[in-house]
């Protein structure tokens, strides 16, 4: 082990954190503002990936694919909100969990019918497809740096949106006191639709930018969804700042755990036991972390002010 390896792993963890943040940001907004548990958020991630793959196929350009797929996701989000989710706001969490569980089944099957069971790929342009030499002798894939950059840009954009704009003010008002915001003349229904559209675009964007390094697959959303939930819960429901910090935390810990946990275990366990326990423990690590944090801070690290 050396510091280059360590630094690269840290970047890898950071990159995973950015993807998690893109999902968690939308999830935590929808949670916080509409009090809606949306299991189907992972389906939006998947839809984004398939949209981008299709556009990339049609236009032959990665950049165009993203530029077309993002507005398509906003539209898809708004349509889904108006048809399926709107009626769920007044329901309890159980109804929401179940109905959105049904949505997962529906979207997975729909994707399979439309695109077929085989995966979809997005080829990268040549200028994004290699690796670049960073200081300290680190050789790092360009595209992963692009992902990190995109994640940071989105985080910055969200911060500006929430803290500097009128719609952001409404979002903040809506998340701390819905009735008050309504009384101030905010059209809550429109606000919710807009927020959901933003959340859908963010999740879809996450799916789009991860697809060039993995591929678009049916069911890809569920695996990451659970990690995103962990992020949201650790960060504190409704808190974008919490989601950002928790996403990086989870991304880095998960990646570091995968790389170095078996080496750490070697100090306390015999070699073959460490080899067996390492992968098991590293895949459980983030859940243990979550249980630990919630045990001491049942509302997560950054519970929003005025939380219910």
């Amino acid at each position: 082990m050396n510091y280059v390896l360590f630094a690269e792993q840290f970047l890898n963890g950071f990159q995973l954190g950015m993807i998690l943040f893109l999902l968690a940001a939308g999830l935590t907004l929808v949670f916080g503002i509409m009090d809606l548990v949306n299991l189907a958020h992972g389906s939006l991630y998947m839809l984004g990936a398939y949209f981008a793959a299709t556009f990339s196929h049609l236009t032959g350009s990665f950049v165009w694919a993203i530029l077309l797929a993002v507005p398509a996701m906003v539209a898809a989000g708004i349509i889904i909100e108006m048809i399926a989710l709107r009626t769920l706001y007044a329901r309890d969490h159980l109804d929401q969990v179940l109905a959105t569980f049904g949505l997962i089944l529906f979207f997975n099957e729909l994707t399979r019918i439309v695109w077929g069971p085989e995966g979809q790929v997005i080829p990268l342009p040549a200028y994004l497809d290699g690796s670049v030499a960073l200081p300290l002798g680190i050789d790092y894939p360009v595209y992963r740096l692009v992902i990190i950059g995109c994640g940071l840009a989105v985080a910055l954009g969200l911060w500006v949106l929430v803290s500097k704009t009128r719609i952001g003010m409404l979002i903040r008002a809506g998340s701390s006191n819905r009735e008050m915001a309504g009384a101030l003349g905010v059209n809550i229904a429109t606000l919710f639709t807009v927020v959901f559209g933003i959340g859908a675009a963010l999740a879809g964007f996450g799916g789009m930018i991860i697809t060039p390094i993995t591929q678009a697959e049916v069911g890809m959303g569920e695996i990451i969804l659970i990690q995103a939930f962990v992020v949201v819960v650790i960060g504190g429901i409704g808190s974008i700042k919490g989601a950002f910090i928790a996403a990086i935390l989870i991304g880095v810990i998960d990646t570091m755990g995968r790389s170095f946990l078996d080496l750490l275990l070697l100090f306390i366990l015999p070699a073959n036991a460490a080899e067996a326990a390492g992968p098991a423990l590293s895949s459980m690590l983030i859940f243990i972390l979550m249980a630990g944090i919630l045990f001491f801070r049942p509302q997560g690290l950054f519970p929003p002010k005025g939380a219910r």
Partner: peptide, 15 residues
């Protein structure tokens, strides 16, 4: 593609 029926069925039951 039975899940295309089953998913919406679930939602209808809830609603």
């Amino acid at each position: 593609h039975w899940a295309i029926i089953f998913g919406p069925f679930l939602i209808l039951v809830v609603l």
